[in-house]
Design a binder for these strands. Structure first.
Lengths: 205, 205
DNA sequence: GCGTTACCGTAGCATCTGTTACGCTTCCGG
DNA sequence: CCGGAAGCGTAACAGATGCTACGGTAACGC
């Protein structure tokens, strides 16, 4: 057996390059050649690591979901109470001050691609539903007395607020700075913070 | 002077075709030939009505903004009180039961295109800021005692909720049905509805 | 009615796209 | 220390894309 390279590492590298191209040049600029150039290789390697461009996109999408899930797990595990965990999970989903604010651009790119590709759309839905389930579980832990209907409404409202902030900030970061996103999230979470806690700087009024 | 055609009507027709292609085939399918076929003409007419593809996109984007602004004006004018107007304006911005639910897909397409084109991004920002200003004005009318900071936070939170719902529904309409969007909006607007009113969901006529 | 002139469909261009075929390079096994 | 197969860069392919040049066509002024 001659030389053998780590295919998994190659795919990860190419998926990262895909994100970078998507963040910098947008969906129209997402070309196999652009990805290859970003990854420091040629299209030959890309087509050997993935059978087709669509497979590359699906892998990059899956890897993005995987990493956000890991990040959400970590944020959740670092908290002891359910309200804290809810705030942490949603807080790391919106744009962070020093963080991955390219991620929203990548997310929008994948979303636009999903509107034209059913397989990508299925991954998108699965990822969003997974996030919804996580938030719903935490919301339910905060408000066990709520009905399912109310639970679902609150969960989807929170997620819509977070994703809306992300999407709007992707195209207009100055109008939706990270500080404002966190403040809006804190206000929306005021219902779930137990009374007497100084979790967010939100005065009830 | 030989025959003369209505250039304005041609551009409008082509912009409408652009929306349809964007809604059906997504951003990758938005080609001049696809637009021409949708409009029932050839690329020749497209290139005579617009100097370039980018000009077509900009015109289609502007026309989209123009129509949503007219719709928002109408919704606002049909209401007498500020809370009603706020609910009507935001209510027609989210997905309607029998409405233009393609519009969200078109919006996402333009957004993704804007991330790769600075001119489109500028139009996007202008449109969103115009919408923000409208909502802010109505929120201020509902709560005149609020500070500018609080006003801005509430306004952007409402808009983020609405756009988040739209974006999420664009890729997963079953998880975010129109009824849920309206319910979430009604809940978010509960703070602005005057006490004693039967705060049911408001439908714009 | 007819000539003129703007309109616009046709066909082609250069370029870029995803994908493929081929062959050089490289490094493991013996 | 070398045979040979796997890895992957090179280059070419067919098709699509934005755009252009040209010619037919149809409508207006006379």
């Amino acid at each position: 057996m001659p030389r053998q390279r780590d295919v998994h590492a190659q795919r990860e590298l190419l998926s990262n390059a895909t994100w970078q191209v998507l963040a910098d040049d947008g969906l129209p600029g997402l070309t196999l050649r652009a990805v290859a150039e970003r990854a420091g290789c040629t299209t030959g390697l890309v087509m050997h690591a993935f059978p087709t461009k669509k497979a590359l996109l699906l892998h990059a999408r899956d890897l993005l979901y995987e990493r956000t899930a890991v990040r959400a797990d970590a944020a959740e595990a670092a908290c002891s109470s359910a309200p804290d965990a809810l705030a942490a999970v949603l807080g790391q989903a919106v744009d962070l001050p020093h963080g991955h604010h390219e991620e929203s651009r990548v997310w929008v790119g994948f979303l636009a691609a999903a509107l034209a590709d059913e397989d990508l759309a299925e991954r998108h839905r699965a990822a969003n539903r997974s996030f919804l389930a996580r938030v719903r579980r935490l919301v339910a832990a905060c408000r066990p007395e709520w009905t399912d209907e109310r639970l679902e409404l609150a969960t989807k409202s929170l997620v819509a607020l977070v994703e809306g902030m992300n999407v709007l900030a992707a195209a207009d970061p100055r109008t939706y700075p990270a500080r404002l996103q966190q403040a809006a999230l804190a206000e929306a979470l005021a219902v779930f913070t137990p009374p007497g806690r100084s979790g967010g700087d939100k005065r009830s009024g």
